[in-house]
Design a protein around this nucleic acid. Structure first.
Lengths: 205, 205
DNA sequence: CTAACCAAACTGACCAGTCAGTTCAAATAG
DNA sequence: CTATTTGAACTGACTGGTCAGTTTGGTTAG
């Protein structure tokens, strides 16, 4: 459940980075379970084994902590998705692999997935801009994979690329979360196969 | 944005029913936008043009109000979904129509959809049992539609029925919400077509 | 030596839930 | 037809508690 580092920042703050990491882990867990508004800064500090003041020393505010949390999680997911992009010859197999990576991510960081779906579609969210940007980054990768399929296979052009991206992207989160929450007996492969049905329906028969 | 009545109760409480309706409408709107924890009972009362005490007269608690809100919304969606079930001869067309109904619902009650995805996968939620029950009711309808397709067409049996239900169900919410929030230019048909790709991928080529 | 951290007290705002009192429409009495 | 009663529906001030964020004075690790 711990989020590894995704990019060192400075030379000096070795201590700070460790503290930030502990705070990321703790708040991801708590916020994923009870929602951003349902968790107090005191709880987060306690769970991270750190004092409340330290939270405000490392992050300007609760809101800022959450924004950085979102960035951090997306960095990890994004890195995993782009890692497949060119590793496979067959674009359909690449898509399969990519969805598999997404499922693994949801299994490893279910709390992040919960946080994402909980806050993503709120209308005047404090993190609206953050979401828009991060969402775009992720959708671009999926879009690239779809592009790859469309370049090598005959596809149903009547289906809008954007809606397709959204459907796959959303299905990954929902299927992954559902597996975690309601159907732990479902395998990774079953889940990937169900989502891949979208792609097979996109490719012309 | 108003949720119509779903069943009269008594003769006398004509006033109460109207009040409940106003409270449903107001809280759906507010909670959908800012989340269950982010909205105060005072705000809900004010938005409904009613005093705070009235909220507690009609509902036992904030939590109870939200539980009833969830039931109310699902009743409406469920009614729309079952209405298609037998209206069409071709099960694939029925599926198409059903997804269309879901998209219409998401467009009419985006706040309900937001509330649903915000709270659905929380781990120890106060509404866990409510969610489990309501989720089951909706999935059963979708499962029936898939059943219908599987009965008339050759399908890919390697895809688990449960995962497929989840993928379609989830895609409806996510695609519907995304259209509302980020891509209002997308048409109902585009959205339905993208989700229907799942079914076309399920049917054997 | 200094950036990072701790512990704990404090502020000011906010909020769920309560309750004593008010309104009013319909039922009943005169 | 008018007067009175009844009680469901509603009101809003109030209470006890919570929480984000601040401050301060001291501690520790690199």
């Amino acid at each position: 459940m711990s989020m590894q580092d995704a990019g060192e920042k400075k030379l000096r703050p070795a201590r700070t980075n460790a503290t930030k990491q502990k705070l990321f882990d703790a708040s991801m867990e708590l916020i994923g379970e009870r929602g951003a508004a349902g968790v107090t800064v005191d709880e987060i500090a306690a769970a991270a084994g750190v004092s409340k003041g330290t939270v405000y020393y490392n992050f300007g505010s609760k809101s800022d902590l959450i924004a950085q949390l979102l960035r951090h999680g997306v960095d990890i997911l994004h890195a995993r998705l782009v890692s497949v992009q060119d590793s496979s010859a067959d674009p359909l197999a690449a898509m399969d692999e990519m969805i598999g990576q997404a499922m693994d991510f949801m299994a490893e960081y279910p709390s992040f997935a919960r946080l994402w779906v909980s806050e993503n579609w709120r209308i005047p969210s404090e993190w609206q801009d953050t979401f828009a940007e991060l969402r775009g980054r992720l959708l671009a990768v999926i879009g690239g994979a779809i592009e790859g399929v469309a370049a090598r296979y005959p596809v149903d052009e009547s289906i809008s690329r954007g809606s397709l991206e959204t459907a796959i992207f959303g299905a990954c989160f929902v299927v992954g979360l559902d597996r975690q929450t309601y159907n732990p007996e479902r395998t990774r492969e079953q889940s990937v196969a169900a989502i891949m049905a979208i792609m097979r329906g996109y490719v012309r028969k």
